[in-house]
Simulated assay, not measured.
Amino acid sequence: MVAQFGEQVRSALRSRGLSIREAARRLNYDPAYLNRVLNGRQVPSPHLVERLDQLLGAEGTVISLAASLTPDDHGRISRSIAHPTRLDRQAVDALAAVLAAQRRLDDAVGAAALIHPTEAQLLTVKQLLRDARGPHRDALLGVVAEYVQFVGWLHASAGNHVEASIHLYDAVDLADEAEDGTLAAQALNFRGYIARRQGRPTAVARWFEAAYHTPGAHAAQRMGDAAQAAQGYAQLRERETAKRLLGEAASLADAAHDQPPGTAYWLTSGFQRLSLGLAHLGMAEHALAADHLRAGLDGLPAEQRHADWTAEYRAALHAADGAR
Rank of each mutant, 00 (worst) to 15 (best):
F5Y: 15
G6W: 03
V9N: 02
S15M: 09
R16E: 07
L18T: 03
L18R: 04
S19C: 09
I20K: 06
R25V: 09
N28Y: 11
Y29H: 11
R36A: 13
L38D: 01
G40A: 08
H47P: 07
E50Y: 12
R51H: 14
D53M: 10
G57E: 11
E59W: 14
L69V: 10
L69G: 00
G75L: 10
I77P: 01
S78P: 04
R79T: 13
I81M: 15
R86N: 15
R86H: 15
D93L: 12
A100Y: 05
D106L: 12
D107A: 09
G110Y: 00
L114Y: 02
P117W: 05
E119G: 07
A120L: 15
T124M: 15
K126W: 10
L128R: 04
L128P: 01
L140A: 05
V143F: 08
E146H: 11
V151S: 01
S157L: 09
S165K: 11
I166H: 14
L174P: 00
L183P: 01
A184P: 04
G199N: 06
A220P: 06
R222I: 05
R222N: 03
M223W: 02
Q228P: 03
Q231G: 01
Y233Q: 04
R239M: 11
R239E: 14
E240Q: 13
K243I: 08
K243N: 08
G247C: 05
A249E: 01
S251N: 13
L252E: 08
L252M: 15
A256W: 02
P261E: 12
G262T: 12
A264Y: 11
L267Q: 06
T268P: 11
S269P: 13
A279Q: 00
M283T: 04
A284P: 05
H286R: 10
H286Q: 10
A290Q: 00
L293E: 00
E303N: 15
D308G: 13
T310L: 02
T310K: 01
A311K: 06
E312R: 11
L317W: 00
